[in-house]
Nucleic acid binder design. Structure first.
Lengths: 220, 220
DNA sequence: GTCTATAAACAGATAGAC
DNA sequence: GTCTATCTGTTTATAGAC
């Protein structure tokens, strides 16, 4: 009888990854001790060495988990595996839809706040973790957004201008999560729930449309 | 004869703060040991306890140092102590100028890359350090930008819409620093120097103008 | 004030019992 | 596979010499 349910090998692995994601996201890699991670996962310290070879192996496993999670959210939103939109208007709608989906995921996502915190911690400094996340998520999503941008504005997808512009569009959204504490204080919000996320998404989309409009006007 | 020059009390304090800023920025608070900080500052471990009461005291001192540094850059750029601009066009120029100054400071600033890294590390989680930086820098600068926004677009400075919009304008710029490694890879740049910073600043300013334009059109 | 020696706690890795 | 005991190194804080 194969026991692939709650207990067993995979359950321990997953529990360790989720606990590590949470604690590394909250306290940083050095601040999250293997003992606390094991405790949170209700596993023993030795299991980290057994399953991942050590603390660094667990970190890499977290990165791969993040790639899968983000792919499952950003992939469909950006239409990674769908056909290209046929018109400029359609491409614009797809861009706006992506931005709104990402805002909601970022600022009010109950699914994976730990995933986000982990990424924000690990994204700054180069290393194996960044390599995994860049190749698995950042590059494919960014490239796709550049294609959509080309269809929406007529600017070449791989031009320097387009690539930078897409970074700024992502940035305005990501910062809402990074600066979360500042946003909450300045907006005088108790926290950021679905209602607040909707307001943030509305402004972000409006900005995207404004920039598209200005670029369309530049070379009509 | 008062010796306020290179050696003495203040020199040790400053050296410790700069070293802590650098190492905490690079490895996080937990990842930066007091030993390495003291070594980098060419001071002894005991001096941290003597001058700052302990590692936490040094962290707070870093935050205060950051506030002073950022004020000296962002303050003049945003015109914190100057009179309000007289026209919408003037306010728009001031906003664009601020964005360009901040981009240059962020992505190519040779003065204080350590300051930036420290802020990005500490900004996520609430605590005494965030309190110091929010009250000292974030709030005053954000409020000033909201005022400029009102003058440039006619939208009320303290409306929810304006406050959020200003966050998105800051965000597109700040992300260029946070996602630095991703930007470098995707742009295929060896690093981000003055030339690259100019390109980034140009796009960011163009975005700001586009959003202003769209808001002006909304309520003419 | 500056520096050194040391204490007490904690880190990650590992060997071996079950 | 899971868990415990232990090893080795490192952490912050501190007491005391100079």
């Amino acid at each position: 009888m194969n026991d692939t349910r709650e207990t067993g090998r995979d359950a321990t692995r997953t529990a360790l990854i989720l606990a590590a994601l949470d604690l590394i996201g909250r306290h940083g890699f050095d601040g999250a001790s293997t003992r606390r991670i094991a405790d949170a996962a209700k596993a023993n310290i030795g299991s980290i060495a057994y399953h991942f070879g050590g603390k660094d192996g667990l970190r890499a496993a977290c990165a791969r988990f993040v790639v899968e999670t983000v792919k499952s959210v950003a992939g469909p939103a950006v239409g990674l595996s769908e056909a290209k939109p046929q018109s400029a208007a359609e491409a614009e709608e797809r861009l706006v839809h992506t931005v709104e989906t990402v805002v909601r995921f970022l600022v009010a996502g109950s699914v994976a706040p730990r995933v986000i915190q982990f990424v924000l911690r690990e994204i700054s400094h180069p290393g194996p973790v960044l390599d995994i996340m860049y190749a698995g998520v950042f590059e494919p999503v960014h490239k796709r957004l550049c294609q959509l941008w080309e269809q929406a504005t007529g600017e070449p997808a791989e031009s320097e201008e387009t690539r930078i512009t897409v970074f700024t569009l992502i940035g305005q959204v990501v910062y809402l999560r990074i600066g979360r504490e500042a946003v909450i204080r300045r907006m005088d919000w108790p926290s950021v729930g679905p209602e607040e996320a909707a307001k943030l998404a509305a402004i972000a989309s409006s900005n995207v449309r404004a920039v598209i409009r200005s670029r369309q006007g530049a070379k009509p």
